[in-house]
């Protein structure tokens, strides 16, 4: 590895550190269902590929139990101290509160009727790779199933990929990758 490469990597790492951050998603499966079934807006061209995953999530996990935007890093602490449902509801949140969120990263949490599984439906319309840290109020999470819509050519074409990472880690809370310019559903069963 030559000096130029090392310098490039260092610059890239610095650039990432400016943008990449994690946000928390609090999940309480005892939460009652939200009747607002509005879908998340996705990137242009990604509608069709996203549609199937949205539909699957709605079919298997009919109850919306949380929704929100990612908290911006500088506002992270104060936002997380609040109830995300209260903070997000447009009727009761003023403009200042909305500014605390990165509206490029929007999510919905859906649950099964039996509340033994939930799915994080998340859109990252921005250019930064993020991670979501899921905090589950009760129960233990099993390995997530990722279903991701992404583009490798700057948004000209969109494709899908689904997988389950190897073996459950004992780490808690669970960390979910939310790369830039992706739509994904992350299904997690709870025991």
């Amino acid at each position: 590895m030559n000096g130029k490469t090392i310098l490039s990597l260092a610059v890239a790492a610095w650039a990432c550190s400016l943008h990449a951050y994690s946000f928390k998603v609090k999940v309480d499966l005892a939460e009652s269902a939200d009747t607002n079934q509005t879908r998340l807006a996705v990137m242009k061209g990604a509608e069709k590929a996203s549609e199937r995953y949205f539909r699957l999530a709605e079919k298997t996990h009919p109850d919306v139990i949380a929704r929100g935007f990612a908290a911006k890093p500088e506002q992270k602490k104060s936002v997380l101290d609040e109830d995300p449902m209260d903070a997000f509801d447009a009727d009761i949140v003023d403009d200042d509160a909305i500014q605390r969120f990165d509206k490029d990263i929007e999510y919905i949490v859906r649950a099964t009727k039996g509340r033994n599984s939930f799915v994080l439906v998340v859109v990252n319309r921005g250019k930064s790779d993020l991670t979501a840290e899921i905090e589950l109020k009760r129960g233990k999470m099993r390995e997530p199933v990722y279903r991701r819509v992404y583009s490798e050519d700057g948004g000209k074409t969109w494709t899908t990929m689904a997988w389950q990472p190897p073996r459950a880690s004992d780490l808690y809370p669970w960390t979910v990758e939310v790369p830039a310019n992706t739509v994904q559903t992350v299904t997690i069963t709870v025991k």
């Binding site: 390995e143 199933v145 279903r147 494709t159 899908t160 990929m161 689904a162 997988w163 389950q164 990472p165 190897p166």
Partner: peptide, 17 residues
Amino acid sequence: IAEGHVYSHLIPGERPL
């Protein structure tokens, strides 16, 4: 296999990795 997915569980019903 797609890079980085040698230990990923494949999800039936989806496009294979």
